[in-house]
């Protein structure tokens, strides 16, 4: 009989694979350095620890990009990570860049404003990565990728992503194992786009619960009906499925209209690691 699916991981194994992944894939692309946007949250803290282990602290640039309403806790938590790892650091406030955009966006349109922050941070990261000579390491996890809880060309933009196949619940296990400060691991996850915002408040469910459901639906290939039988509320299952479907566009390159006999994305097929 097969064991019931579990979100439990063996942190040392995952850590080993991810550190090798970062080192191998960054160096074979011709780089030895990396840039991480450090928000003060668990995902970017974990990414920073991993890339520090992979490349050494002198080869990692952690960039803090606060907006004026960002929580002071975020900056402090990011400072703790920088202090513990010894990576290079840079703080680039985005308030002066954001203000002209925000002047044209009504205050109640939180999503538009949030997207502006996320995309400005992407611009800063990519600009600094050119200066530093390092690749941008992504910090998106499997839960937010599946739910589409991310800004296209914003926080999802990166050269490579070590965390995208780990659910938030698994991120927490790995973060504790690599000694990410407990204050960062235990606090409620937040995009920190406005005061008091939390992911779980905005999504309307906890990561722990939705990760269990995603594990059944996505990894276990269970039918929605069998998830309901397993104890999940029917409306919750439907809402999550709909979120996954609706956000597929964020997970793919934009479709190219096929006209010729050989088209990028359809029948011109090579890995990024081509020739390396």
């Amino acid at each position: 009989m097969s064991e019931s699916p579990s979100l439990e991981i063996h942190p040392d194994l995952v850590r080993r694979i991810l550190i090798d992944f970062l080192r191998t894939e960054i160096t074979r692309a011709g780089f030895s350095r990396a840039v991480v946007g450090l928000s003060g949250g668990i995902d970017s803290a974990l990414a920073c620890y991993l890339v520090d282990e992979a490349l050494g602290p002198e080869n990692v640039l952690a960039v803090r990009m606060p907006y004026q309403t960002s929580s002071p806790d975020s900056l402090e938590h990011a400072a703790l990570v920088i202090g513990q790892t010894g990576v290079r650091e840079l703080t680039v406030p985005i308030t002066p860049m954001a203000e002209p955009f925000l002047a044209a966006i009504p205050a109640d349109q939180a999503v538009r404003r949030g997207n502006v922050f996320a995309r400005l941070r992407m611009i800063v990261l990519y600009d600094r990565s050119a200066e530093f000579g390092g690749l941008v390491v992504g910090t998106g996890n499997k839960t937010e990728i599946l739910l589409g809880y991310t800004t296209l060309y914003g926080d999802s933009a990166c050269a490579l992503n070590p965390l995208g196949d780990l659910y938030k619940t698994q991120i927490r296990q790995l973060a504790r194992a690599v000694s990410v400060p407990e204050g960062t691991v235990a606090k409620p996850p937040s995009a920190d786009l406005w005061a008091g915002q939390t992911d779980e408040g905005e999504l309307g469910f906890t990561y722990e619960r939705v990760d269990q459901l995603l594990l059944l639906l996505v990894d276990g290939r269970h039918s929605p009906e069998s998830c309901v039988e397993a104890g999940f509320d029917r409306a919750f299952v439907q809402a999550v499925l709909e979120r996954i479907r609706r956000n597929q566009f964020k997970r793919l390159q934009p479709p190219i209209a096929k006209l010729s006999n050989r088209t990028v994305g359809y029948d011109f097929l090579y890995l990024r690691d081509w020739g390396t």
């Binding site: 064991e3 439990e8 063996h10 040392d12 194994l13 995952v14 694979i17 698994q170």
Partner: peptide
């Protein structure tokens, strides 16, 4: 290609 996570120390 390695895949499949659990509490075990191997894939």
């Amino acid at each position: 290609p390695g895949r499949g996570l659990s509490r075990e120390p191997r894939l």
